[in-house]
C-alpha cells in the first residue's frame, strides 16, 4: 500500500563529521550537592556525548566541592562544546581540559580477583610482583590484587591475568591532576 512512500527519517541538517575524534580528560569542579552527578551525566546523554570513564568524589569538604574526572572521546569541535555546556550548569565552578593543557598525571586503581593453583598460581604471583600489585586478599585457591597506575598498565595486567584464572575486575575510573604548582 505504501510501496511508493519515500524513506523518511528525523535527521536535521547534519553535515558529515570530518574531524577525527580524540580522547580527552576533563576535570570538573562542582558543588557537592544532590543531583549534581545526574546533571553532568544527563547532559552527556541528552547531547549525545560519549563518556569513557567517570570518577567523582568530594575533595574539599569545608567548601562542599567535588571533583569530577571525566574521559571523553570527541572531535575537537565537540570537545569545546562539551566544556562550554558543562560550564553552563549552575553548580559547575570550572572545567579544565587536562589533555589540552599538557601532560597531566593520570592514575587508576583496580581490584583484580584471580583463582588458580599450581604453576598458574606461581606465575600469577611473579607477574603481580613485576606490576607492583598488592595482595589484599588471599585464599589457598585465589588472590585479590590491588593495582594502581596508568589505565594502560592496568589493561596489561588484566590481559596477563586472563589465561591464569582471572575471575573478575573492578576499576575506579581515572583520577587526573595537572603537573606543576598551579591548581585548578
Amino acid at each position: 500500500m505504501n510501496a511508493n512512500l519515500m524513506p523518511t527519517g528525523s535527521a536535521y541538517f547534519l553535515t558529515k563529521e570530518t574531524q577525527e575524534t580524540e580522547k580527552h580528560t576533563l576535570s570538573v569542579l562542582v558543588d557537592n550537592e544532590p543531583g549534581i552527578l545526574a546533571r553532568v551525566v544527563g547532559l552527556f546523554s541528552a547531547r549525545g556525548y560519549n563518556i569513557d570513564s567517570l570518577t567523582v568524589s568530594e575533595t574539599e569538604h569545608d567548601k562542599r566541592l567535588s571533583r569530577i574526572t571525566v574521559v571523553v572521546v570527541a572531535t575537537p569541535k565537540t570537545l569545546v562544546q562539551i566544556k562550554l555546556q558543562l560550564e553552563r550548569l549552575v553548580p559547575v565552578h570550572r572545567v579544565h581540559d587536562l589533555t589540552a593543557e599538557g601532560t597531566a598525571l593520570e592514575r587508576e586503581l583496580a581490584l583484580i580477583k584471580v583463582a588458580g593453583t599450581g604453576e598458574n598460581r606461581a606465575e600469577t604471583l611473579r607477574l603481580a610482583d613485576a606490576f607492583r600489585a598488592q595482595i589484599v586478599d588471599a585464599t589457598v585457591e585465589s588472590f585479590v590484587f590491588e593495582v594502581t597506575g596508568k589505565p594502560s598498565k592496568i589493561d596489561s595486567f588484566i590481559a596477563l591475568m586472563a589465561p591464569l584464572g582471572l575471575v573478575e575486575v573492578v576499576r575506579t575510573g581515572l583520577a587526573a591532576i595537572s603537573r606543576g604548582q598551579e591548581g585548578m
Binding site: 541538517f13 553535515t15 569541535k77 562550554l84 555546556q85 553552563r88
Partner: peptide
C-alpha cells in the same frame, strides 16, 4: 540556516551571544 554547508558561504561572521555555548555550536 537551512543546509549548513551552503550557509552564507562567503561572509565573515560576528556573533554576539550571552551564552558561550552558542558560539561555534
Amino acid at each position: 540556516t537551512g543546509r549548513i554547508d551552503a550557509f552564507s558561504p562567503n561572509s565573515r561572521k560576528v556573533h554576539v551571544d550571552i551564552d558561550p555555548s552558542s558560539i561555534n555550536k
